[in-house]
Computed example of a mutant assay.
Amino acid sequence: MGVYNVHERLLAAKEGAVGALIDGLSGGEADRLWPHPDWPAMEFDRPLTAGATGGHGPVRYTVTSYVPGTWVRFAFSGPRGFHGFHEYAVVPVDEERTVLRHTLAMRAGGLARLTWPLAFRHLHDACLEDSLDRAELACTGTVARPARWTPYVRLLRALAR
């Protein structure tokens, strides 16, 4: 089963300000992009660089490519059946506006053919929209249309606890 999932937000911010959000990915308190503490912390075995391994919750990955201020790609190593990558990219529009894009491209095999559409997709979508809300807040001081969790996402989160 092929999966191609894109989330993006047009931000009223310069390319460098948006790129700094990617550079700060760590899941720690200073991370202004990852939506902690509402979601499992993003953790790595070393600072963000190619070869760093880590993940968030049951989702595990290795940083395969990193261009500071521009782009980072993570190759999945878990859960079993996730074969592909996810990435954040900075896409300049003009001097004052930048798109922050998150792309997930993978082939779901085995049990993941069920767990992706039934659970992971919904949680992923909610987490990414929360991440983009954090980016908008960090760059502009406000969020025009905050993301809202669906009743199904709230149910999945309750079951996971």
Rank of each mutant, 00 (worst) to 15 (best):
A147N: 11
V18N: 00
S26L: 11
V6S: 06
H124Y: 15
H102W: 11
R97N: 08
P79Y: 03
D94V: 13
A75F: 00
E15I: 03
R107P: 01
P92H: 08
E29T: 04
F82L: 07
E15R: 15
V99W: 02
G54T: 13
N5Y: 07
P92Q: 07
R154Q: 06
L159S: 05
S65P: 05
A135M: 01
F82S: 04
L137R: 15
A12F: 05
S131N: 10
Y66C: 06
R60D: 02
M42N: 08
T70G: 03
A12T: 09
F44L: 12
T140P: 05
G110R: 10
G55P: 14
V18G: 01
F74I: 07
A147M: 05
E15S: 13
W71C: 02
D133M: 02
A158H: 14
D130E: 14
V67D: 05
P58C: 10
R161P: 00
W116A: 10
E29S: 09
L128Q: 13
R46W: 02
A20R: 14
V99N: 00
G27S: 08
G109I: 11
W149Y: 03
L123W: 03
M42D: 04
G57R: 08
E87I: 06
G57Q: 12
P40M: 09
D31Y: 07
D125L: 11
R60W: 00
W71F: 08
C139L: 02
T103C: 03
P35E: 05
P146V: 04
G27L: 12
A112T: 02
F120M: 09
F74L: 12
P58D: 11
G69L: 04
P40W: 08
D133R: 00
E129T: 14
L111K: 10
D125G: 15
G69S: 06
Y152P: 09
F120N: 04
E96G: 09
G2W: 12
L25C: 01
E96Q: 11
S26A: 08
L118R: 14
Y61P: 02
A50K: 11
H124F: 10
V63W: 01
R157I: 06
W39Q: 04
A138K: 10
I22M: 00
A105S: 13
A138S: 15
T62F: 00
P79S: 06
A30S: 06
R80P: 08
G51Q: 07
L156I: 11
R46V: 06
A105T: 13
W149V: 00
L111Q: 06
P58W: 09
A52C: 14
R145F: 13
L100T: 00
D94S: 07
A12H: 08
E8S: 08
T115S: 14
